[in-house]
């Protein structure tokens, strides 16, 4: 068991107050432990943690470019193997680096079967450059490149299913997680780094600035995503779903209405069609992964 009391991500970093990805960074290192080499892609976390010379990383850490973290990690892993060293290799990339620009390097690295864990902190848009849409942006979210407007209801496409894509690469362990369930997330990280081969974890990491909510609500926002069925927490071992977090589902409105990026769905006029479509996404997820806890009905009197 790894010592989860260790603080390996230091104070003084420049993340916004209530930053979901900053919580993710801390929890990742708690789950992975001190004998870990981290490879970061360019992005919010990289920038807020590494202005020269003020590094927040207490483990060996390397950042090269936006789209090449999986390839850099391939080299790190090969070198460690050659030297007979035993450190774990953990890649941390945002959703833009993972779903979009880094896809080539990720696909190649997973296919080659390197022994590493890739963790995508998913805040559902390019936050570092100012909240532009990515392949992870959910349907109807308003971003600066998919703005809601007179003839737009925000992002036109649903989120890409990255975990399934990497499971299809033969990844031995794939999991989704949320910073709002810290124990579950740390446990998944620990499991992944101790599984041989390329593992993938996608951790939902709410962004107060990008989504438009107060920083004290980050954990609540992540929980609502799970409780509405828009973010499903599951584990896949060798391509098969082995564990799913079940919930008593809430309507998606409870999640959407608290975020500025979905405000156009409620004001000036309520957009029932879009809300219904998002509810359909949650219903589909619930059906696919069997997340619903069926409450016992009151016996008829």
């Amino acid at each position: 068991m790894v010592d989860k009391s260790l603080e390996l991500f230091d104070c003084g970093h420049r993340a916004c107050g209530g930053c979901g990805p900053a919580i993710a960074a801390r929890l990742i290192l708690k789950g992975a432990g001190k004998d870990t080499i981290v490879v970061s892609s360019t992005g919010c976390m990289e920038v807020f943690s590494s202005p020269y010379p003020e590094t927040a990383w207490k483990v060996p850490w390397i950042h090269s470019l936006f789209e090449n973290a999986a390839a850099v990690a391939s080299g790190v892993e090969a070198s460690l193997k050659k030297q007979g060293r035993s450190e774990k290799v953990v890649i941390i990339g945002g959703d833009g680096a993972t779903f979009d620009i880094g896809m080539l390097c990720i696909s190649g690295a997973f296919e080659r079967g390197h022994d590493f864990t890739y963790i995508c902190y998913d805040n559902e848009a390019y936050m570092n450059t100012g909240i532009q849409r990515s392949g992870a942006t959910p349907y109807a979210a308003s971003t600066t490149t998919s703005p809601a407007g007179r003839c737009s209801t925000g992002n036109k496409r649903p989120k890409k299913d990255m975990p399934q894509i990497l499971a299809a690469h033969g990844a031995p362990y794939v999991a989704t997680a949320s910073v709002s369930y810290p124990a579950d997330f740390m446990q998944k990280v620990e499991k992944a780094v101790n599984t041989k081969g390329p593992c993938y974890i996608q951790v939902h990491a709410p962004c107060a600035t990008g989504w438009g909510f107060e920083g004290n609500l980050t954990m609540k926002m992540g929980k609502l995503a799970v409780e509405t069925g828009l973010c499903v927490l599951y584990e896949m071992v060798d391509g098969k779903v082995t564990r799913v977090k079940k919930v008593v589902r809430k309507p998606v409105e409870e999640y959407l209405s608290t975020q500025k990026r979905f405000r156009h769905l409620f004001k000036p006029a309520r957009k029932d069609a879009e809300i219904a479509q998002i509810q359909a996404i949650a219903d589909f997820n619930a059906e696919k992964y069997g997340i619903d806890i069926k409450l016992k009905k009151e016996p008829a009197k």
């Binding site: 090269s64 999986a70 391939s74 790190v76 090969a78 070198s79 050659k82 080539l104 390097c105 696909s107």
Partner: peptide, 27 residues
Amino acid sequence: DAEYITVESEFSALSACIGASAAGSRV
């Protein structure tokens, strides 16, 4: 006696060299 990484692009070829070099290997 070397690790030979059959990458999927030149972009990754040199990127992997970065990782291996930084980890302490001649690449």
